[in-house]
Structures are given as structure tokens and as C-alpha cells.
């Protein structure tokens, strides 16, 4: 009687250790970050790191639930779309694997979406060529133009920062994915044993009561 569960225990332990070398796969995750060139990049993965290829990504306005745009991921699980023009800044990016796996990513759009960087590049190159005196004179003589310049300058910095920070945004987004840890697994097994204990307790009480009668 005592020996009975031993083999299964071994089996459970075997299974338990074999997971260490294998990936986990059971749900789909989507991450999104701004690219810095007026587009938003999304990456879809199954938990375990396998890219979710050719799955549908839908962008929804969070406040109304209206579908803004949708498309399919490429072979790396990536899908890129231009920053949608909406009145509300909150959007929901939903990935649907079509096989029962579904997940979403909440995204807050920035106040002013950066202009395409390519059109701005010539201006950045010209500014250092200007002599210091010329710029200060310009500042004195034409104030409205400087204001415009500084606005554009801020926009440029924002765009460049977004571009440089895109990999960091990606890592941050990915780090929110929580794959099962040892504690999770042991905790679950502990719960199962505890439930078995509770069941055994009630069954034995029933048995005792029947014996008393």
C-alpha cells in the first residue's frame, strides 16, 4: 500500500526535471514599442520564446472598442503599423493565434507623434555648418523662426531618442512576460498535496462517523 505511489512519484520527479531543458509554451504574448519614425513595432511570441508566425494583430481604440487597423505578423512574429490617428490616446493591441490563444497589450500614444526622421535629416546637417555669430544674429532678428526651429529641434530629439531607446523599450516590454518559476511549480504541487490531505481528512471523518453508528 505504501509502495504504490512510489513509481508515480518517480515519474512526477522525472517530468519535473525534464522541463528544465525545454521551453515553456502555452500562451501567446504581444509586446509593442515606438520605433521613433512614426510607426509602432509589435512582437508576438508564444511563451517559451517561439515566434508567433502569421497570426492576426488587431489595433483597437480602448475607449470605444473600434477596430483601427489589423494585419498579420511576419515569420519573426513582428508586425509594424503607423501610429494611428485617434482622438483618444489609449489603444489596445490584440493578438489572436486563431487556435484559442489570445492576448493584448495596452499602449498609450504620445502627445505629438514624431514626424518621419528622413525628412528632418538635412536640417540637422545644416545647423552645425552655420557660424555661431550667424545663429545669434538670426535669434535676434527673427524671433518667430527660432521658435519654429526649437519646436522642430524638440521633435527631432524626441524622434532620435525614440529610435535609440527602441531596443530598451523592447527589453522592458519583454521583461513583463513571466514564465513559470520553480516557486510556481513547487507551490502548485504543494496545493495539490494539501487538497489531497483535506479530501483524506473528510473521508476519514466520514468513515469514523459510520463506525460510531
Amino acid at each position: 500500500m505504501k509502495k504504490k505511489p512510489l513509481h508515480l512519484t518517480i515519474f512526477v520527479i522525472m517530468l519535473f526535471f525534464s522541463f528544465v531543458n525545454s521551453g515553456f509554451a502555452h500562451k501567446v504574448r504581444i509586446f509593442a514599442w515606438e520605433n521613433g519614425d512614426g510607426t509602432i513595432m509589435t512582437e508576438s511570441k508564444f511563451s517559451g520564446g517561439r515566434a508567433a508566425k502569421n497570426v492576426t494583430v488587431t489595433v483597437i481604440e480602448a475607449s470605444t472598442g473600434n477596430e483601427l487597423l489589423s494585419g498579420k505578423t511576419d515569420t519573426k512574429g513582428m508586425y509594424q503599423f503607423p501610429v494611428p490617428k485617434t482622438t483618444s490616446k489609449e489603444i489596445e493591441i490584440v493578438v489572436n493565434g486563431g487556435d484559442g490563444h489570445k492576448n493584448s497589450w495596452h499602449y498609450t500614444l504620445e502627445e505629438t507623434p514624431p514626424l518621419p526622421v528622413a525628412s528632418q535629416i538635412p536640417e540637422t546637417k545644416t545647423s552645425p555648418q552655420k557660424e555661431p555669430g550667424q545663429t545669434s544674429m538670426q535669434a535676434v532678428t527673427s524671433t518667430p523662426k527660432t521658435q519654429c526651429d526649437s519646436e522642430e529641434f524638440t521633435r527631432l530629439i524626441n524622434a532620435a531618442l525614440d529610435r535609440k531607446l527602441a531596443p530598451i523599450h523592447r527589453v522592458l516590454a519583454e521583461s513583463t512576460d513571466h514564465s513559470p518559476t520553480l516557486q510556481d511549480i513547487l507551490g502548485g504541487i504543494g496545493y495539490i498535496l494539501g487538497l489531497a490531505g483535506i479530501a483524506a481528512y473528510f473521508q476519514s471523518r466520514k468513515k469514523n462517523q459510520e463506525q460510531k453508528k
Binding site: S22, F24, L195, A199
Partner: peptide
Amino acid sequence: TVSLLTATFFVASLIH
């Protein structure tokens, strides 16, 4: 028996 198989099922889905 049931709880052992429950535990087996619980960890089996981690094997990809």
C-alpha cells in the same frame, strides 16, 4: 492516486 496524477498533469504542460 488521484492527487499524484493531478500533480503529474500539472507539471506535464510545462514540457514543450
